[in-house]
Every structure is written in structure tokens, then in C-alpha cells.
Simulated scan of single mutants.
Amino acid sequence: MTAARTEQGPDTRARGEGESDVVLLLKDLVVEFPVGGGQMVHAVSGIDLDVRRGETLGLVGESGCGKSTTGRAIMQLPRPTSGSVVFDGGDLTTLSPRELRELRPKLQMIFQDPISSLNPRRRIPDIVGDPLVVWGRGDERARVVPEVLEAVGLDPQQVADRRPHQFSGGQCQRVSIARALVLEPEVLICDEPVSALDVSVQAQILNLLEDMKRRYGLTLVFIAHDLGVVRNISDRVAVMYLGRICELGETTALFDDPVHPYTRLLVSSIPSMETITGADIEEADRGRGEMPSPINPPSGCRFRTRCPAATERCSAEVPEMREVKPGRFAACHHPILEPILEQEGA
């Protein structure tokens, strides 16, 4: 296990996993933005996280928690303030612009708004084939572009003379996925790829991503605030709050039995067809209130201002990420170790 600074605790990789299984490793990652007056936005504060080859890692949390910034920091857009992003054994933060450019084809990103991420003046085949031209493989466009378009469910002949404004949001997202896949990347960062789409279209894009993952041997980092979407697509889930990882674990176990109070609050907010009880409303009320400002985050545990279990220790000491159950990591002084069913039956 790799040691990390005291504020974030040990590396969050499950014990027993081999180094060769990790394709992407974040160590003590910090991203800060100056906002004038000597103040800084502490967007990401010393997180440690790994992504295993071939998995889908979900990154979830409220808006403003730093999950999209984390995804962009992986891509070095912009470069993080400090820390490291290790990809295939090399630290991206230490590479020169030229060296980083050489690795770009292996790391691709799908953005939240599919329409604005596409050039409105370009035809679809040109948009998808442009990465090949940039990398001196323009002679492959006639073969590769139709193959990728068909793979994402678009008819190459029908889209040949069309531009992004002539497509729906879901179709534009398919174009974005095709553009990301044309260089055959190893890792795909998906930043809220379905949040701007209708519910009926979301399922189609999620199924498409699963198909592309199998077909191209991809590793996915899936960023979203929709817990239902994250649960359906992820192998593991990392929960972020105000720039820090507060819980990490296998998807089913994390959703069925969350151990961090913030994770439990998020899970309790998922809409359900079951009858909402008074206890559910009371639990939601406990976490009501806005997230503190990332310019001046609370001392100690950043969730303490909204946590019903907060104590003086929570304000004085930053909780370290530690394994509280087999394969389950949480940064909390008072993790909830009793299963939900036991608590409900009490």
C-alpha cells in the first residue's frame, strides 16, 4: 500500500490487489483555483484513488463536490496543483507538453453537453475522423470512421452530410462517443454523459457504453450525480464530498449498506416506488442544507456541519481513509457499521 498524507489517509486500493491491475492511480491529488483577494477554491483536496484495468469506476457526489474537476485533472485539463496521476506506470504530471501529447490517444473524454462539445460547422464524418487526421492517420478515415459510427448505432450513409444541429442530444452523444473511440483509447473519462439527455435516451447511451467497453476493452471512469445511473453501470463507486473521497467500495455493497453518513444520506435520497416513511423524511432532514463553500471549507471532517453524528473530534481532526469492512474504505471517525436492515428493525 502506498502511503499518503495524513489528511487523506492511506491509499484506497483494496488490499491484495496487484499493481498490474491498476491502470490509473491518483496520489494526493490537489486542484485549487485562485478567485482573487488571496482566496482559493479548494476543488480537490488530496485524494487517493485507483482505477483497475477493465472496470467501470463510478465517481458520485453533489454538484460542486469536485468530481468533474477530478476527471479533468486526470486528463491534465488543467494540470493539478499538486499530487500525481499515474497512468500505465508513468506520472502524467511530470511529462512535458510534447510527452503528454503522445499519450493523449490512450486517454479520452466524453463531456456533459454533447451538442456544445461538437463543432457546429463540421459534418459528422469529419468530426469523428478529425483525431485520425491530427495523428497523421488520415488515410484510415474511409475505413475506420464508418466502422465506429456503426458501432455506436449511427448509419454512416445517413449522417454523411449532416451537422450536429440536425441531431437529437442522444444522437450527438453517440457522435461524441464515436469520436472518443476512433483512436482506440485504453481509458475513457465519462463526465456526466447522460445528465443532459431524456430518461428514455439515457438507458440507450448506458447500454452503448457497456457494449463499447466490451468491444474495445475499455476502462471507464463514470462521473455522475444520478445515483441510479451510477449503480447500474459501475463495478465500484467512490463518493466525493467537498473535494474529498469519503467512501469507496464495490457497488452493490456500498448501496445496500453504506458506512459513511454522507453516503447513507445520498442513498436515502434515491427515489423509490416504496412508501416513504417518517423515518425516511427525518433522515433526509438531518442532512438538509447547502454544501459549505469550497473557498472556506470546514475544519476537520468537511461533512460535519451536516452530519447528525458529528462530535468535537470531527471538527478538530481530519478523518483518514481506512478499511472499515472488507473491501470498504471510509473517511469517517464514526462509520455506521450496522446494516441498514438491522437499524430499521431496531
Rank of each mutant, 00 (worst) to 15 (best):
V35L: 08
L266T: 05
G46R: 13
L57V: 12
E250M: 06
P131R: 01
I115D: 04
C301G: 11
T12S: 09
V194T: 15
V159A: 09
L265P: 04
T12P: 03
G46V: 01
F167D: 00
E7I: 09
I295A: 03
V199Q: 10
L26S: 07
G153L: 11
V145N: 09
G289S: 05
P261K: 01
L242P: 08
T305M: 02
E210P: 00
T275W: 05
S117K: 11
L59K: 00
Q204F: 03
A331H: 07
M75S: 12
G71M: 06
G249E: 10
D11E: 14
I115K: 14
P185E: 09
P114C: 03
L248N: 03
R101N: 14
P125L: 11
Q39C: 00
P292E: 08
M75F: 13
A330L: 00
G170E: 02
R13A: 10
L248C: 14
E317W: 03
C246Y: 06
L208P: 07
C246M: 14
R302K: 09
P326Y: 01
R214W: 04
G64M: 02
T93K: 12
G169R: 02
A316W: 02
I177T: 08
Y216V: 03
I295F: 06
V229C: 02
R214L: 08
P335T: 13
E99R: 09
E184A: 13
D155A: 15
C190Q: 10
P78W: 10
A180P: 10
Q202M: 02
T93M: 05
T93V: 15
E7G: 00
L248G: 01
R214P: 06
